[in-house]
Amino acid sequence: MARLLIVHHTPSPATQAMLESVLEGAGTDEIEGVEVVSRAALGATPVDLLAADAVILGTPANIGYMSGALKHFFDTVYYPCLSDTVGLPYALYVHGNSDTTGAVRAVESIATGMGWRRHRPPVTVTGEVTRRQREACWELGAVTALAAAERAQGT
């Protein structure tokens, strides 16, 4: 069975709404054979990442950067997983009150350094999360679950 890992830092109602939509999309009945594993960024481990066929990262934009919790996740997994996760499909969602640019840039820089492959453009939201943005998060979850299934099948 394929495994999709969702690593998130969810301190606000906005990031919670985005996470819920990602989880709904990833767990849709139309996608079979994918186990969805959700971990808070401070609790996710190298073992979680090494078992994943794809990963979705979720973070608020804090002071122009990803959350400290997501940065901690990267610090924890970087060396133990560096050579074994090359090519891993990943996706990203970010919420900010006024800007998400720095957070997106930081996550993409680290993911590129790890040799991961961005599966979809990030879903970024500033301010309140709209219905259309929740739908974009749902789609991000669904298509990344499909990427996990494809990677597990070796296609």
Rank of each mutant, 00 (worst) to 15 (best):
T15G: 05
Y93A: 09
S98P: 00
T101M: 09
Y93K: 04
P80L: 01
L92C: 00
N62D: 15
G154N: 01
A147E: 04
H72S: 09
H72R: 13
L50S: 15
R151F: 02
G154T: 03
I63Y: 11
P46D: 01
T126Y: 05
L42F: 02
V22T: 08
E139R: 13
V36I: 14
L5C: 00
I63L: 14
D53E: 12
V94T: 07
V94W: 00
M114Y: 10
S83G: 07
S38E: 14
G68D: 08
N97T: 10
D84P: 01
V104T: 14
T10E: 05
L82K: 13
E150R: 13
V36P: 09
A152Q: 06
A147K: 03
R131N: 11
P60K: 04
W116M: 13
Y90Q: 05
I56Y: 09
T15C: 04
Y65C: 02
I63C: 03
L4Y: 08
G141F: 10
E32F: 02
G27N: 12
V123A: 13
L50D: 13
E135M: 15
H119W: 04
L19T: 02
S109C: 07
G33Q: 05
G113A: 06
E108G: 03
L88A: 02
G102L: 14
H9G: 12
L92R: 00
A52Y: 08
A61H: 06
L23E: 11
G154C: 05
